[in-house]
Design a protein around this nucleic acid. Sequence first.
RNA 1: GGGCGCUUAGCUCAGUUGGCUAGAGCAUCUCGUUUACACCGAGAGGGUCGGGGGUUCGAAUCCCUCAGCGCCCACCA
Length: 928
Amino acid sequence: MFEIPKAYNPKETEDKIYMAWEKSGFFNPDNLPGENIKKDKNGEEETYTIVLPPPNITSKLHLGHAAMLAIEDLLIRYHRMKGYRTLWIPGTDHAAIATQNVVEKKLLKEEKLTRHDLGREEFLKKVWEYLEKTQAVILNQTKKMGASLDWSREAFTLDKQREKAVRKMFVEMYKAGVIYRGERIVNWCPRCQSTLADDEVEYKEQKTKLHTFKYSKDFPFAIATTRPETKLGDTAVAVNPKDKRYQKYIGKVYEVDFCGIKLKLKIIADRHVEMDFGTGALGVTPAHSMADWQMAEENNLEIIKVINEDGKIRNGFGDYSGKPVLEAREMIVKRLKENGLLKTSETELSSEISELSSVSDVSEGEEIKNNLSLCYRCGTAIEPLPSKQWFINVNKKLERLGNKSLKEKAIEAAKNKSIEFIPERFEKRYLDWMENLHDWCISRQIWFGHRIPVWYRKSNNNTIVQSMRLKKENQEIYVGIEPPKGEGWIQDEDSLDTWFSSGMWTFSTLGWPDNFKDNKKSGDLKKFHPTQVLETGYEILTLWVSRMVIMSLFALKEIPFENVYLHGMLLDKHGKKMSKSKRNGIDPLEMIDKFGTDAVRLSLLIGNTPGNDVRFSEEKIEGQRNFVNKLWNISRFIIANCELRIANCELDYKNLSAIDLWILKKMLNLIFNVNHYLMNYNFSAAGEKLREFSWNDFADWYLEASKIENNKQKEIISNIILQDLLRLWHPFIPFVTEAIWREIQETDEQKFLIIEKWPIQDKYKKIIEKTETAYYFEPVMDVIKSIRSARAEYKIEPSKKINAVIYAGNKDEKELFESQSDLIKNLRTGIDKLEIKEKGEKIKDAVYSVVGNIEIYLTGVIDKEKEKKNLEKEINNLEKYLSRIENKLNNKNFIANAPKEIIDKEKEKYQENTTKLEKLKKKSEFAF
RNA sequence: GGGCGCUUAGCUCAGUUGGCUAGAGCAUCUCGUUUACACCGAGAGGGUCGGGGGUUCGAAUCCCUCAGCGCCCACCA
């Protein structure tokens, strides 16, 4: 026995066990023993698949990852044991922009070079060199968490196989007319030199100056803007159609000289213009505002691009050209002021204008609050620019989807519950997002990533395109997986949005497109797609989850996953987001080192409900570490005290004692509850039930009792329960359970807990049915608890023995107590002489308590005052309680309206407690 | 501006379709080295369920309203 250490030592066991698991090959579903696998009605094997949300190659394991891994590994291990052919696919994401940024920064810091100094090829070499070093880190850390991922299927969003898939996808979407090249206002980050998707833009509230001015002396009214420099590209002025002040101007065209630049402005009406803001008139700059672009489309306006990709004014705008926007803004404000066109505190505009603009008291630059758009990566202000980009048309009706668009199908999937969200409320968020979805811009002006598989060949005709629209392009286009044959082809410089490749993750990892010929799935794709659950943080629901749906619908005409489980964010103990800069982060690896992986996993699973943020602290982990050790010691006790290791001997069903039956019933219940909670993704409740059973029921009662009453039966039952308990716990805390499993093996043959069968209730049902034991153990527990409680209350020294008399109330219970008298005497009760009677006389000078029909007298302890007070208190409480029930029962409406069970329950409670009250009162009268 | 979530014991959180005297873990207090475990055992205290109103026989739970906190989406030139 004492060769097993007193405390569980995770450090010594975990790595060894992980290596043994890997060696066993059971992480790979192909290696799972066939006889264990469930079959469906058609005789097909049931599978269970999760794809790991691929972490960025440059990231290190943080608590968010740890929570994700704990949850997914739990689901995977549970289903593997339940007999599904279970697959969990690992991989990493190239995270194009993020990675490129990291390498660029490093390059600048270490070598003082920009990527442009190196050129595309050289720069990419640097990126790959960097990856060599970082890519393995996160995956090794993943192993520390005990993740049972099938490493033989490891993938990377930018490896050869995925590159092929991405290109094929692009080509197919292009052929289907879903991918197109178009021009649109994009969020342009002048620093990253790249477009950003809508959801990559962050907003920051700031104060900015709102300028009110007239374009020129001969323009009839003033407009207001925060960005005077963009007004160089205005082609219209918009007013609200209901605005009486401006109605007469609508439709007119003015040619003005705006600070030296000639503008042609059409007055248009647009209902989105707010009359109360500024002057109620808005200069329309189609090239540099999303909203204005929209107006330009509707009113067929000319589009003049003012600002370049570098954030400076373009050529052709006089001395503004080449100036950064802020500088140009100052120049324009200055010039307007000089010309008396700007409304300032000193200079009023002409009377006509001031009248029109009287709504707001505008000075040279009234401070207003607005939201500045920032790049989510580098924080640089975003410049909306028109640019040629590749898009996915989400609204195009597709023959392959029954003449529905990708957007419609994606909405349908959620509405008809083909895809279910846990928690449910996220379905609404998904739908809101989908319903407002615009075409998805998939091209990014970065070098690292999947380069767009499009090649251009210029023709000689070099016409200058006046408008920015793609009317005439004098070039040939080739879209294909391989570069085209022939001379003069140049590949598109841009790369694809990271989400394009990660959106394909469920099927690109399962062999698409090779496993998809003539609309038929084969191989892994057939076996494992659609996957069962996608588990991730709710913050990337729209960013990633929705894209996966779209991509899968297009490529396979099926959903990528059946369920989406979203976990919350992990906050520090004060409810703040953990971050490196705040230094409030808890490093999971440090915690693993200190408390062991199982403790970390358990603390992430218990007390964490789907979709809700959790506050996390080291104390939580410590508490779970204590439990892990408790489980270790429970096992240690059983191993030491029972001769048999694997219980394969028959139970003598007839001779089960009350406590045996009790624990078996508890176990039956436990299996039911754990299954129920796990199937409903309520991991926390499942864990709590397991903890409660293991610690409070099994250890504190059953094992304690078995010290007093040790027999073969108890050894067998302890063993049966321990084994199933280890199975039930395994998905939560795989290392310690596997370690114990090794200890209880009879043979040298290595058997792994990971592929053991999940406990079934039937086994316990059968035992319980066969037994002739009729008693419940609960009354014994009540008596024992009552005695312990009295001992503590009256401060009886633990070493001091007392005597007890129990009036059982009826014959059955009398027999029960007689059979359990050893336990009643010795389970931390310190009873010397115990008398059990059916009923009897009141006993003077004894501590008295009542449980149900049972009366307990403890003698050898006398403290009349305390006894009296306690009795009075209890009687008082009981009377209050009874009067509450009485009121209820006397309430006609209650009797008329409440369901029968509820009324019966109340009546029962009333009966029981009335009897109890009577007994207490009698004792009280008798004793005092 | 629109939407979602949260507010329950000192702390962190459960509380399924309204129905046990509202629960758990941690912390606190008392007692205890009883041969698996002090990372332990026995016992105890602690809550007007954010405020107000309503529906109902009955509300932590449903509705309205107010307040505070957090998140998401959109965006005003």
